[in-house]
């Protein structure tokens, strides 16, 4: 099988094309929500939300099976988004507070799940998803919920950018940052929910963080950030899925599909990083900012 064939033919298989559709929708999300996550520095909040969804999924599943899973996840995610927005207003050390909230939520989830028989299987499914066994219904669910998240962010986009650039100036003209924080947190939470049953929280997190960071390396033009992030995510998803397919069909190695896509995303990031560093070196040597770890 030639490489070109793998990049195209593989997706004539229904399960491959369903996975691709979900990942392309997520790429769009990466292009908008992910860029805002980067500009606002909400990487840790996103990580927190992926963990906090867990008890919702666990409790929802115990109560209502597969349908309950979705409802539970949405309730947990939106609740956590609100709690985190409230914590962001308080003077307590925010990063520690986020960590405590999400580990507590996660612990509740583990306790609920550990009373079930297939505990490890469910945990792994939540983390890594079942990218290749997504049903059509799940594809539709993902698209609808991602569309809501995109709508939430889209209607507040210019205000979100203002807030990201200059918080004090933003409040000074009479906006209320809390409302915007809430909208963005809920949007992130919805994305996490939409994707976590299908692609797993690990991949959602990578989609929210990596393409935005790549876009920042590639361009300094504000409106270019969004398409760059989306296209990068889409290409990485396509390559990642193809790679998994080739490894499985061609070499008989079963790569976990979600983790493969994440690693392709990260490899793309590494390329962009090295390219940026080389470009900066070629141009006039500029003073580096102080190390901030």
């Amino acid at each position: 099988m030639d490489a070109w064939g793998a990049l195209l033919d593989a997706f004539s298989l229904p399960f491959m094309s369903r996975a691709l559709v979900v990942l392309l929708v997520l790429s769009l999300v990466a292009g908008i929500v992910g860029v805002l996550v980067n500009l606002r520095g909400l990487e840790f909040i996103s990580d927190g939300l992926t963990h906090a969804v867990f008890p919702g999924i666990a409790i929802g599943f115990v109560w209502g099976g597969r349908e309950g899973l979705f409802a539970g996840a949405i309730v947990a995610a939106v609740l956590t988004a609100i709690v985190l927005a409230v914590l962001m207003r308080k003077a307590v050390p925010v990063d520690a507070a986020i960590a405590i909230v999400f580990t507590a939520m996660f612990s509740i989830g583990v306790i609920v799940v550990s009373r079930q028989t297939n505990y490890v299987g469910q945990l792994e499914q939540l983390l890594f998803g079942r990218l290749l066994t997504i049903s059509v219904v799940e594809v539709v669910q993902t698209i609808v919920i991602c569309a809501i998240a995109l709508l939430l962010v889209g209607v507040t986009l210019k205000e979100q950018l203002f807030r990201a650039f200059d918080r004090t100036g933003f409040s000074a003209v009479g906006y209320r940052p809390f409302v915007l924080d809430l909208v963005l947190n809920v949007a992130i939470a919805l994305v996490v929910v939409a994707a976590s049953s299908a692609v797993g929280t690990l991949l959602v997190l990578a989609v929210l963080i990596v393409p935005g960071a790549v876009a920042r390396l590639v361009t300094v033009r504000l409106w270019l950030l969004f398409p760059v992030a989306a296209v990068f995510a889409a290409v990485a998803a396509w390559l990642g899925l193809s790679l998994g397919y080739v490894a499985s069909v061609g070499a008989g190695i079963n790569l976990p599909s979600g983790a493969t896509v994440v690693l392709v995303l990260v490899a793309g990031y590494a390329l962009a990083l090295v390219g940026r560093l080389l470009l900066d070196r070629l141009r006039a040597p500029q003073p580096r900012p102080a190390a901030v770890l």
Partner: peptide, 22 residues
Amino acid sequence: GRVRRQGSQVASGIVLTAGFAL
């Protein structure tokens, strides 16, 4: 973390997902 326009949060996020996936 030292690269311009990246910073510590991005560094943590990338390393977290990359390490876990690996």
